[in-house]
Amino acid sequence: TLKVHYKYTVVMKTQPGLPYSQVRDMVSKKLELRLEHTKLSYRPRDSNELVPLSEDSMKDAWGQVKNYCLTLWCE
């Protein structure tokens, strides 16, 4: 499951381990945003700071799954 905080919160079913490009595509379609305006980030467990997502950091983000849910933020 993927939970995304935006102006409102959406929850989507997804497969764990998807690459950033696929996750961003899913989120942009769900929120009806243009792909270039979809910026995603996540919060590591040991931090209060949001970390921007990229293809490289997506593996780390999937490591933050809690209760089968990855929580992301969209700007």
Rank of each mutant, 00 (worst) to 15 (best):
T1L: 12
L2W: 02
L2P: 04
K3G: 04
K3Q: 13
K3N: 04
K3A: 03
V4Q: 03
V4K: 05
H5W: 01
H5F: 05
H5C: 03
H5L: 06
H5A: 05
H5V: 09
Y6T: 04
Y6L: 09
Y6P: 08
Y6V: 04
Y6K: 05
K7E: 13
K7G: 04
Y8T: 13
Y8L: 02
Y8C: 09
Y8R: 12
T9S: 02
V10C: 09
V10G: 00
V10P: 00
V11D: 07
V11T: 14
V11C: 12
V11A: 07
V11H: 02
V11Y: 11
V11I: 12
K13D: 14
K13Y: 11
K13Q: 12
K13N: 09
T14C: 15
T14K: 05
T14M: 10
T14S: 02
T14I: 14
Q15K: 14
Q15Y: 13
Q15P: 13
P16C: 14
P16W: 12
P16F: 15
P16A: 11
P16S: 11
G17S: 04
G17Y: 13
G17F: 11
L18C: 05
L18Q: 03
L18N: 07
L18W: 04
P19L: 08
P19H: 09
P19E: 08
Y20N: 09
Y20F: 09
S21C: 11
S21Q: 13
S21D: 12
S21P: 08
S21N: 13
Q22A: 13
Q22G: 04
Q22H: 03
Q22S: 10
V23L: 09
V23Q: 02
V23F: 03
V23W: 01
D25V: 07
D25R: 10
D25S: 11
D25W: 06
M26D: 04
M26V: 04
V27N: 09
V27W: 03
V27S: 01
V27K: 03
V27I: 10
S28E: 03
S28N: 04
S28V: 06
S28C: 10
K29E: 08
K29R: 13
K29D: 06
K29P: 03
K30V: 08
K30I: 04
K30E: 11
K30D: 04
K30S: 08
L31C: 11
L31K: 05
L31P: 01
E32N: 15
E32A: 13
E32C: 15
L33K: 01
L33E: 00
L33G: 06
L33Q: 02
L33P: 03
R34W: 00
R34E: 15
R34H: 10
R34Y: 08
R34I: 03
R34N: 13
R34K: 14
L35R: 15
L35W: 08
L35A: 15
E36P: 00
E36T: 05
E36G: 03
E36Q: 08
E36S: 08
T38V: 15
T38W: 06
T38E: 01
T38F: 12
K39T: 09
K39I: 13
K39H: 13
K39Q: 11
L40Q: 01
L40V: 00
L40E: 03
S41K: 14
S41E: 08
S41A: 06
Y42N: 03
Y42K: 05
Y42R: 10
Y42P: 00
R43Y: 08
R43K: 14
R43W: 08
R43T: 04
R43N: 08
P44G: 05
P44K: 15
P44I: 05
R45V: 12
R45D: 11
R45A: 13
D46M: 10
D46Y: 08
D46L: 03
S47P: 11
S47N: 07
S47L: 02
S47K: 12
N48L: 12
N48K: 12
N48G: 12
N48W: 09
E49I: 09
E49S: 10
E49K: 13
L50E: 01
V51C: 01
V51K: 08
L53F: 04
L53W: 01
S54T: 15
S54A: 06
S54D: 15
E55T: 07
E55W: 03
E55F: 00
E55A: 02
E55V: 02
D56I: 07
D56R: 08
D56F: 06
S57Q: 00
S57L: 08
S57W: 02
S57T: 15
S57D: 01
S57V: 10
S57N: 13
M58T: 05
K59R: 13
K59D: 14
D60K: 09
D60S: 02
D60N: 07
D60A: 05
D60V: 07
D60L: 09
D60Q: 11
A61M: 00
W62Q: 00
W62A: 00
W62V: 08
G63F: 01
G63V: 07
G63A: 15
Q64I: 06
Q64N: 12
Q64P: 03
Q64L: 02
V65F: 07
V65D: 05
V65N: 15
V65M: 15
V65P: 11
K66F: 07
K66G: 11
Y68H: 15
Y68G: 15
Y68Q: 15
Y68W: 05
C69P: 08
C69S: 10
L70M: 14
L70F: 14
T71M: 02
T71N: 12
T71E: 15
T71D: 15
T71H: 13
L72V: 07
W73G: 05
W73F: 08
C74Y: 05
C74K: 05
C74G: 03
C74I: 01
